[in-house]
Structure formats: structure tokens, C-alpha cells
């Protein structure tokens, strides 16, 4: 599944369009970036309401396919600038994380198996 399919199905806004043809390997949701660094896998779509510039650094470091920022949180200018530079797909929605994760699961996007 490509990021573009998720954008269409969940009617997400595209804050930074780096490459929506990226393959989605699964999903991860947390607002604690230390947990994301330990728990998310390459190609995952990450659902969070955190929009600090470090979000982009973590997404880039882990080569995540996209970040979905929930509850209409507006990323700082610095975050958007960094997303553009690091070519990170930044997506947005008014829905909360619970709802977005439920809809992703409905699309067949799965979480990572523990261990």
C-alpha cells in the first residue's frame, strides 16, 4: 500500500508532499519520541499529535513512510521547513489518534509484532 492510498481513504491534508508513492510497511502510534525511536520500523506510518521539529528528525532517521499529525495540530514553521529538507511526508487530520489508527487498521495497515 502506498502513502497516497491512505491520504485518499482518510481524506488527509498533505502538509509536506515528499513522495506519496512510498510503500507503507505498517503503523505505529505514540507521542513519546523516545518510544517511537525504539518501536517504529522503517516504512511505518506514524500517528501522533506531537509536531515539534524533532518529529521530522525521528521520521527521517527511521525512514518512516509518513507522519500523520492528528487533532489539527499545526506544525511549527521549523518543522515544515525540516520536513521539506529531509523529504519527510507530513500529513494532517482533524481526527484524533484513536480514530486514525482504527481507520488505518480497517485499511489493513498493521502494527509491528513485539520483539
Amino acid at each position: 500500500m502506498h502513502v497516497a492510498h491512505i491520504v485518499e481513504q482518510l481524506s488527509l491534508s498533505v502538509i509536506e508532499d515528499a513522495d506519496l508513492a512510498r510503500e507503507v510497511s505498517g503503523g505505529y502510534a505514540s507521542d513519546l519520541l523516545s518510544c517511537v525511536m525504539a518501536g517504529a520500523a522503517a516504512g511505518n506510518v506514524w500517528v501522533t499529535l506531537q509536531c515539534h521539529p524533532n518529529v521530522v528528525a525521528v521520521a527521517s532517521l527511521l525512514e518512516l513512510s509518513a507522519v500523520i499529525i492528528t487533532e489539527d495540530m499545526v506544525p511549527d514553521e521549523e518543522t515544515m521547513h525540516k520536513a521539506h529538507e529531509a523529504r519527510v511526508n507530513l500529513l494532517g487530520t482533524a481526527e484524533d489518534t484513536f480514530t486514525v489508527v482504527g481507520r488505518l487498521t480497517g485499511l489493513g495497515v498493521e502494527g509491528n509484532r513485539p520483539g
Partner: peptide
């Protein structure tokens, strides 16, 4: 700062 932002900006 380390738990929430992963590293010090």
C-alpha cells in the same frame, strides 16, 4: 525532554 522529544534539539 528525552522521553518526549527523543533527544535534545
Amino acid at each position: 525532554i528525552l522521553s518526549n522529544l527523543g533527544f535534545i534539539p
